[in-house]
């Protein structure tokens, strides 16, 4: 009894030490990569903007300023600090084609874009993980059926497939998210399947099986937690792709519908004004770029930090 307790305590201690040190090492490695830090800083700022948009935005993003302020359609930015006359209302990013404050719309757009990225990737990860795990764990015909379906999905150019799905479901942000989620399932399913294949041969899995653990137990308690690492990297990079795809769909008028402040649709609706009112085309594009860049930098950093082969570098 005493012995057993001791062993259990030791075991727990070992596990806690191990898990703490794994995350600590990951964090440490991540912080050593300056690109990842930059990514995290940008992302942090974007998250803060998204969470506090209603307090920091100077205007309601849907408010039409006709008759409220002396501003003109597609007016250039007016920043008091840079010499714009004080008697004119300040609009940091100018006025859009419907006489709304572009800056407020950009800020609220952060909220939409981050939500797009997180929700589609969460959806894709959940479905992809389940499919990949089943496929990798059971093998045989289950594996064959699931993976062939994934191959078919992968054979389409992802944006075209998304457009096809949205066309069938009808335009709209929810349908666009669903479409992007569906087209990104295969990459997660493949990643999870690969990790499951390698993890399921591990000794502790065999041990659990020998102890009579159920399939469910083995798969979700033993295998999946240990197969997560590549998924985190894939997911972070996948958010960037999802945001880009959603912006592309909205640009084409298939995603977010007006008047929702979505960067892609803001850019798309003013695309003919690129020489007349460059701020309306350039700023949403810049915002998309910044967001995608932050996720890509962070994803790259995470990949390096989580890669055991690079462990000796730290």
């Amino acid at each position: 009894m005493n012995q057993e307790n001791k062993v259990a305590a030791l075991d727990a201690e070992a596990m806690s030490i191990k898990s703490v040190s794994l995350w600590r090492i990951t964090w440490r490695r991540l912080f050593r990569r300056r690109s990842a830090v930059v990514g995290m800083i940008i992302l942090g700022i974007l998250v803060v903007i998204a969470l506090t948009a209603q307090w920091i935005a100077p205007y309601d993003p849907l408010q039409v300023l006709i008759g409220i302020e002396p501003v003109k359609q597609r007016q250039a930015p007016c920043i008091h600090l840079f010499g714009c006359p004080e008697d004119q209302p300040q609009h940091i990013a100018g006025i859009d084609g419907n006489v709304r404050d572009e800056f407020s719309r950009l800020l609220y757009g952060t909220r939409v874009s981050l939500w797009i990225g997180l929700s589609t990737v969460t959806f894709a990860i959940v479905i992809g993980t389940i499919l990949g795990a089943l496929s990798g764990y059971f093998g045989g015909w289950v594996d064959n059926v699931i993976m062939r379906i994934m191959d078919v999905l992968l054979a389409f150019p992802s944006l075209l497939l998304a457009i096809a799905i949205v066309t069938v479901l009808g335009p709209g942000l929810t349908n666009a998210l669903l479409a992007i989620g569906i087209v990104s399932i295969p990459s997660y399913a493949r990643v999870v399947r690969a990790s499951v294949l390698s993890v399921r041969e591990m000794d502790y899995v065999s041990a659990t099986r020998a102890l009579g653990g159920s399939n469910f137990d083995i798969l979700f308690r033993r295998i999946l937690p240990n197969a997560m690492t590549p998924l985190i990297v894939q997911g972070t990079l996948g958010i960037a792709t999802a945001i880009l795809d959603a912006a592309a769909l909205s640009f084409l008028g298939l995603g977010a519908q007006p008047p929702m402040p979505e960067w892609g649709s803001m850019l798309g609706s003013e695309r003919n004004q690129v020489f007349t009112a460059p701020h309306l085309v350039f700023l949403p594009g810049f915002a998309i770029m910044l967001t995608v860049l932050s996720f890509n930098l962070l994803g790259d950093g995470l990949r390096d930090a989580l890669d055991p082969r690079l462990a000796h570098n730290t």
Partner: peptide
């Protein structure tokens, strides 16, 4: 990377600042 980022930010500001007013519109 830092240099690239700062150049991009600067370039964007200049473009916005120097862009023609929405009024010179051929479009």
């Amino acid at each position: 990377l830092f240099a690239l980022l700062s150049v991009l930010v600067l370039a964007s500001m200049i473009l916005v600042a120097c862009g023609p007013k929405p009024t010179d519109a051929p479009a």
